[in-house]
Simulated scan of single mutants.
Amino acid sequence: MFKGVATAIITPFDENYEVDYKALEEFALFQMNYVDGLVVLGTTGEAPTIDENEREKIVSKVVELVNKKIPVIVGTGSNNPKHVLYNNKLAEKSGADGLLIVSPYYNKSTQKGLVEYFSYVAQRTELPIILYNVPSRTGGNILTDTAIEIFEKNKNVIGIKEASGNISQIAELISKKPEDMFVYSGNDDQALPLMALGGDGVISVFSNVLPKQMKELTEAILTNDYNKAQEINKKYNSLMRKLFVEVNPIPVKYAVSKLGYCKNILRLPLISISENGKTVIDNSFEELNIL
């Protein structure tokens, strides 16, 4: 699918809380200058509040704009497989290059159930699938052997976005996985260690703000220039973490609004960043001479 960095892009809204498609196009064009892929309608894109008509229009616009220069991956996950299959069909129809599918949340599952669930979904689409493991949001963990079993049983499951935060689990996965299984970091501050272990890249929140710098970091790792990678990581690690000072994507939306690519507007249940959160981001921008 890609090696390096794919930005999990924000979804801009206007003052009426409608999707701002002009801002979306401008932001996607900005990102395309630097990154290796775009992830549309993930967590950072506020996917749970996007309706079906908006979803189809958002994906179609980004796919048309990108025009196969880099892959467009669509977040289609849900805890209802019928909804996932519907979202997958929309992505197929729109010409997307791949799917990012989170493990079921709230109703959760057993490890055996996860194998059956992802296999059921994979068998009903031709598009490549990246599994998404984020226990902090789903309440469940895709264990190493489960991820590998899903990959081996389904030819179009190509890898996993690992956001467990458990570097020991990630190290085990990378040491045991088949050679052609991709592993991407779901946490910006773990991109360096994950890729140093043999991972393939990062699906990034941070690159919404500084795509060029995250691209430089991943390029340095992929070319084994670890001195440069460590310097970049040291410089930007604080901002990577501060973009999670409140629940994602509250801080990153504020940060992108400071760059002028969107308004600082989110849909409920998310609300605008607190004054304290603004100060944290503002101070980071000042320290790094952003703007």
Rank of each mutant, 00 (worst) to 15 (best):
Gln190Leu: 15
Ile101Asn: 01
Met1Phe: 10
Phe182Met: 11
Ile265Cys: 03
Ser136Met: 12
Glu15Ile: 15
Ala8His: 06
Phe2Val: 07
Gly139Asn: 06
Val102Met: 02
Ser272Thr: 14
Ile73Thr: 06
Asn107Met: 08
Lys89Gly: 06
Phe27Ala: 08
Ile129Pro: 02
Ile70Arg: 07
Glu162Gln: 00
Gly77Arg: 04
Leu143Tyr: 09
Thr76Tyr: 03
Ile170His: 02
Leu114Cys: 08
Lys57Phe: 06
Ile142Thr: 01
Glu246Ile: 07
Glu25Ala: 13
Pro269Gly: 08
Asn133Phe: 01
Glu92Leu: 09
Ile148Ala: 07
Glu287Cys: 06
Thr43Tyr: 01
Lys155Ser: 15
Tyr120His: 09
Asn227Ala: 13
Leu173Lys: 05
Ala147Ile: 06
Asp189Gly: 10
Asn80Pro: 00
Leu194Glu: 01
Tyr236Asp: 10
Thr218Lys: 00
Glu116Asp: 15
Ile221Ala: 00
Tyr254Thr: 07
Glu64Leu: 11
Lys93Asp: 15
Tyr117Lys: 04
Ala191His: 03
Leu38Lys: 02
Asn16Gly: 13
Cys262Ala: 15
Val247Lys: 15
Ala6Pro: 03
Asn87Trp: 01
Asn227Thr: 14
Lys22Met: 12
Leu24Met: 14
Val256Ala: 05
Pro211Phe: 01
Ile203Val: 15
Gly139Tyr: 03
Asn156Gly: 13
Asn156Ala: 11
Glu54Ile: 08
Pro12Arg: 00
Leu38Glu: 06
Asn133Gln: 10
Lys215His: 11
Arg124Leu: 12
Thr76Gly: 02
Ala122Leu: 02
Ile170Leu: 02
Ala171Tyr: 11
Met240His: 05
Thr43Val: 14
Ala122Trp: 02
Gln169Leu: 10
Ser257Asn: 08
Lys155Thr: 13
Pro269Phe: 06
Pro81His: 05
Asp36Tyr: 04
Gly98Gln: 06
Met181Gln: 00
Gln213Lys: 14
Asn276Gln: 14
Leu99Gln: 05
Glu56Met: 13
Lys69Trp: 11
Ser284Lys: 03
Asp282Tyr: 09
Lys215Tyr: 11
Asp189Ile: 00
Glu216Lys: 14
Val19Glu: 06
Ser207Tyr: 01
Ser60Glu: 13
Leu194Asp: 04
Lys153Arg: 15
Gly45Leu: 01
Thr146Tyr: 02
Ile174Pro: 00
Ile50Ser: 02
Ala23Gln: 08
Asp20Val: 03
Gln230Met: 10
Val209Arg: 02
Gly42Leu: 05
Ile150Cys: 03
Ile142Gly: 00
Val63Trp: 02
Val202Leu: 12
Lys22Thr: 12
Asn166His: 11
Glu219Pro: 10
Leu243Phe: 10
Lys176Phe: 13
Asn187Ala: 12
Leu99Met: 10
Asn16Leu: 13
Glu179Gln: 14
Tyr254Asp: 04
Phe206Gln: 03
Lys153His: 11
Gln190Arg: 09
Asn88Asp: 09
Val157Glu: 01
Val121Pro: 01
Pro193Leu: 06
Pro81Cys: 07
Thr7His: 07
Lys228Asn: 10
Lys234Asp: 13
Ile150His: 04
Glu18Thr: 07
Phe13His: 04
Ser119Glu: 00
Val280Gln: 03
Leu259Glu: 05
Val252Met: 09
Lys212Glu: 15
Leu270Trp: 13
Val121Phe: 02
Lys82Ser: 14
Ala191Met: 13
Leu194Trp: 01
Asn227Glu: 15
Val19Asn: 04
Ser204Phe: 02
